[in-house]
Amino acid sequence: MDESELEYDGHGGVIRGRRWSGDAPADHVVLVVHGYGEHVGRYPHVARRLVDDGAVVYGADHVGHGRSDGERVLVTEFESVVDDVHTLEQRARDENPGLPVAVVGHSMGGLIAARYAQRYGDGLACVVLSGPVLGSWGAMEGLLAADEIPDVPIDPSTLSRDPAVGEAYVADDLVWHGPFKRPTIVAMQRLLEAITASGPVDVPMLDLHGEDDRLVPMAESRAGWAAIRGERSSERSYPGARHEIFNETNQDDVLTDVVTFIRSHLPRREAI
């Protein structure tokens, strides 16, 4: 698998990302949309699985995340982040003319991907959401109610049953290990409300969630999912799995579900 770096102008400065491709010509594009406080450099194993199934994969660090410009984890307007993802899609389409495009979003990236489906779904083959923040999020509401945001980082044990995942997360200098910032939470709440108010989308969507997700509880997320779920959407959950299902002990099964869903919504491959 070949990996190359890319950058482009986003709403808050330079956005930096990565492109993954294989030796064989790709027959579709996948955009990976990462979660809060992290970066796309944590997704090469996801990209490899997608590339092995015929994709060329693009991902970019959101404003204030990873290697992109901006104050760390400060997002004052998520609709602008959605616009940044659209710029990435346009870049991918320019480099891969005629190929269908799918989107895979995790956690906060699932929130962004859900809004992306509402705004730009007409041009997509399908969307996959992994542990998305949808509907209501009790942790966020608790932070907004506090007079001062506590300086408590995300508990790495909530990410995966594999302790090595949490250890790598803690050791990653590009991951934000500080407190949430109030403007970011307020902006996230606004986007949650906008998504719920906009209702179902027609683009095929797959919602995947760990049943032991303590960071973004499945019950809260699925309540929001019900408001946007279209007729061509489906969902699946994984017993015992925690928040980062792409990094879970059953990640092979999860990624199989992802590539199977994407493949089922692509134009049929022509026989050689």
Score class of each variant (00 low, 15 high):
Arg229Gly: 03
Gly37Leu: 09
Ser157Asn: 06
Arg222His: 13
Cys126Asn: 14
Lys181Ala: 12
Arg268Lys: 14
Gly22Arg: 04
Met205Pro: 06
Ala113Ile: 08
Val165Gln: 06
Ala125Tyr: 04
Arg115Thr: 05
Asp27Leu: 07
Gly37Lys: 10
Arg119Tyr: 02
Gly98Val: 13
Pro267Ala: 09
Leu144Thr: 05
Glu38Pro: 00
Glu71Lys: 03
Val104Gln: 02
Asp151Glu: 15
Ile272Asp: 13
Arg268Gln: 13
Arg16Glu: 03
Val133Tyr: 00
Phe180His: 14
Gly240His: 07
Gly17Gln: 07
Val75Phe: 00
Cys126Tyr: 01
Tyr43Ala: 08
Ala92Asp: 09
Gly12Val: 07
Glu193Cys: 02
Met188Ile: 09
Glu141Ser: 09
Val258Gln: 04
Glu248Arg: 07
Pro267Ser: 08
Gly110Pro: 02
Ala227Ile: 08
Glu193Pro: 00
Leu50Lys: 04
Ala60Glu: 05
Arg268Tyr: 04
Glu244Cys: 06
Ile154Phe: 04
Ile245Arg: 00
Thr76Cys: 06
Val101Trp: 01
Ile15Met: 10
Ala102His: 07
Gly210His: 01
Arg232Leu: 08
Ala117Pro: 02
Val63Pro: 01
Arg42His: 08
Glu95Thr: 11
Ala47Gly: 13
Leu88Gln: 03
Pro156Gly: 03
Phe180Ile: 03
Glu141Ala: 01
Val81Ile: 15
Pro97Asn: 11
Val56Ile: 15
Trp20Leu: 07
Pro156Cys: 11
Arg16Ile: 11
His106Pro: 00
Glu95Leu: 14
Asp61Ile: 08
Met140Val: 07
Ala241Leu: 01
Pro132Ile: 05
Met108Gln: 12
Val14Phe: 00
Val63Arg: 11
Glu77Tyr: 03
Phe180Pro: 00
Val133Leu: 10
Pro239Thr: 12
Arg72Pro: 06
Ile262Lys: 06
His65Thr: 14
Gly12Cys: 05
His11Phe: 12
His265Trp: 05
Asp9Gly: 10
Gly37Pro: 00
Leu215Trp: 01
Arg236Ser: 12
Gly22Leu: 07
Val259Phe: 04
Met1Val: 15
Leu266Arg: 14
Tyr116Phe: 14
Gly166Cys: 10
Asp23Ile: 05
Glu79Gln: 15
Glu244Asn: 09
Arg269Gly: 12
Gln90Met: 11
Leu50Thr: 08
His106Asn: 11
Ile195Cys: 10
Gly13Phe: 03
Ala187Ser: 13
Arg268Thr: 15
Asp52Pro: 05
Gln90Asp: 12
Met188Val: 05
Gly199Phe: 04
Arg49Gln: 11
Tyr8Phe: 15
Gly41Gln: 07
Gly22Phe: 05
Gly199Met: 04
Ala241Pro: 00
Leu174Ala: 12
Met1Phe: 14
Val254Asp: 03
Ser234Thr: 15
Gly123Val: 03
Val56Arg: 10
Ile185Arg: 02
Ala219Pro: 05
Ala125Ile: 07
Leu99Tyr: 09
Val103Asp: 03
Pro25Tyr: 10
Gly13Arg: 05
Val175Pro: 01
Ala117Gly: 06
Glu235Arg: 12
Gly131Ala: 09
Gly199Val: 13
Asp212Ile: 01
Val51Ser: 02
Ile272Arg: 09
Val56Met: 05
Leu215Lys: 08
